[in-house]
Design a protein around this nucleic acid. Structure first.
Lengths: 333, 333
DNA sequence: TTGTAAGCGTTATCAC
DNA sequence: GTGATAACGCTTACAA
């Protein structure tokens, strides 16, 4: 940074004005090929790089987007980040990481970064709406989560239908006593997955015994605890629909600990298809989400907004797929 | 961004000069408490936020650091990122993500971002040195990897000793025929872990049969393939030291596929202690790295450099711990 | 086609 | 203590 060559230096050496240099560098047509080449050669020779702060100040853009998640430590976001990063890079944008840890102060702080010019746009995956007041028409795309009534563009999956399909799989195997380990309801994503569970059960004419819906927090340990409570009952389930893979790992772990075979005694279905679920034992039956595509699509939508396009009013819903593996089987008869 | 209030607006409303406003906002002592309060109230009222581009241009700092990894999709980096992010945030820095995919062009591109003012410093985890020429004394901290002869500050673990300890564990259980699935040698990290394997074997007076060292690439599939080649031999090993957990998952998966029990027939030790290894079946014996602390420490070192401190000449070596779990046992007699 | 000059919104250096 | 004012390095009317 210190003593980097600037446009002025190139201008002096080339015997032209700074304006011409700027135009040449921008590949403007308003400059002869000859002078343009001279400037380019000089720039290369001096190893010139434009100062981004100066450029940003002048152009009022940062060519940076902000990706805000609840927890950077969650492996679920990896492929999404990867998709966002790839698409952003292609378009010349850098990606800033935002981590809220569900802290409201941090959430608004990241929105502020949009206004102070830190970033031009945001991909929001916290499920929390922008703070009220003057926050309209922000270049924000909501991914994964749903922020109802926000009017923001969304890129998501159909959680209800996906969950329903997963439970229907269990039912079609012959299970009747199916329990659900949910996410942290009343967050929309958790509510929708639970809703899918309920719909599938209802349509099959099955009742959900009291206490068969247990609330978790999406972490491994929580899967273990919820599982423990379900299997301390006198009427334990023969199958579990778990709201995400991590809790499913925990549930399987706990089942093994208390001596129940998976899928022999209990079938388990997860949600997310983390990259490890296929190497898990038993390989986990789970709902696959197109994470990488969610990231790429969200970034593409954001790019559209940033280049002045109109925002799509309808949420973009990407398809999921049920991956049937070794953790589900017919119930023991 | 558009039509945000600026210092000038506050100055006019407060009836003072922009200089005074700037000073008041900076909590300078060169301003009366009274005017300071007036400015602060006004700033809050107008919902003022300083323009970062203008500030960066003037101060010649971006208050941003760049964290560059080989593959953002690798879960191994999660806790490190989390540590970096937390420490950076406390110090008022934002974190930009860089992803090289081992592409040399990208690697230099991220170094360029340091020079063009995109970021003030970098935490480098690619193992690739800065491009030659004029790159001296860059505010770069190398984490995890080793870039020998670079003169850059390092935050790392002792891979040789950690690997050695893992293999000694297998030896102490009574194993004699121990094979090694390595990372992509000749990369330093992979070489060091293999070196630890060799030293432990040598010290125990054990020979390593030809072909007992198989080269992987740190991914699950590679663990499966390497394992397959080892167990197609007439003298298969009774224990495996695998250079990372992901390949260990793959190896265990493959062992199960060919009907070998873990740890009954074959013991397996991994490296990294990914957050899933304890929920894996069998729970994986592995070398635990203080990932979060590596991230925090690397960022702290970088902050020291950025605030003008002298760089530590000696690498900072953080301790590892062997986590003995269920994937290792004495060999079948 | 090129040059001149006016900003972009701050912070820092002077005076007063 | 406070106020003019000059940078910071770039882009872009407007002139020539």
């Amino acid at each position: 940074m210190r003593d980097r060559p600037k446009i002025k230096d190139i201008a002096e050496k080339a015997g032209v004005s700074v304006a011409t240099v700027s135009r040449a560098l921008a590949a403007s047509t308003l400059v002869t090929a000859e002078t343009r080449q001279r400037v380019l050669d000089l720039a290369r020779e001096l190893d010139y790089r434009p100062n981004v702060s100066a450029r940003n100040l002048r152009t009022r853009r940062s060519m940076t987007v902000l990706m805000v998640v609840r927890d950077v430590g969650n492996p679920f976001y990896l492929d999404i980040l990867k998709g966002v990063e790839a698409t952003a890079r292609e378009a010349g944008y850098a990606v800033l990481m935002g981590n809220t840890e569900n802290d409201p102060a941090r959430e608004t702080e990241y929105f502020n970064m949009l206004r102070d010019g830190h970033a031009d746009g945001m991909i929001l995956m916290t499920g929390k709406p922008p703070p009220a007041g003057g926050w309209n028409h922000l270049p924000v795309v909501v991914a994964l989560e749903m922020i109802e009534g926000s009017g923001l563009p969304h890129v998501q999956i159909d959680n209800v239908a996906a969950a329903r399909g997963a439970v229907e799989h269990l039912i079609s195997l012959g299970h009747r006593r199916i329990a659900h380990i949910s996410g942290p309801v009343p967050e929309p994503m958790s509510v929708y997955r639970r809703e899918g569970f309920r719909l599938a059960m209802r349509d099959a004419g099955l009742t959900i015994p009291a206490g068969y819906e247990v609330r978790g927090d999406f972490l491994i340990e929580s899967g273990m605890e919820c599982c423990r409570s379900l299997f301390s009952r006198s009427d334990p389930p023969t199958a579990l629909f778990v709201a995400n893979d991590e809790m499913a790992y925990g549930a399987v772990h706990e089942l093994r600990r208390i001596g129940r075979a998976v899928p022999g005694d209990v079938s388990v279905v997860g949600f997310d298809d983390l990259y490890l679920s296929k190497a898990f034992y038993p390989p986990l039956t789970t709902v696959g989400q197109p994470r990488s595509e969610i990231g790429r699509t969200a970034m593409a939508v954001l790019l559209g907004i940033l280049s002045g396009g109109s925002e799509a009013a309808e949420p973009i819903v990407l398809p999921t797929v049920l991956r049937v593996r070794g953790s589900t089987a017919p119930p023991r008869t």
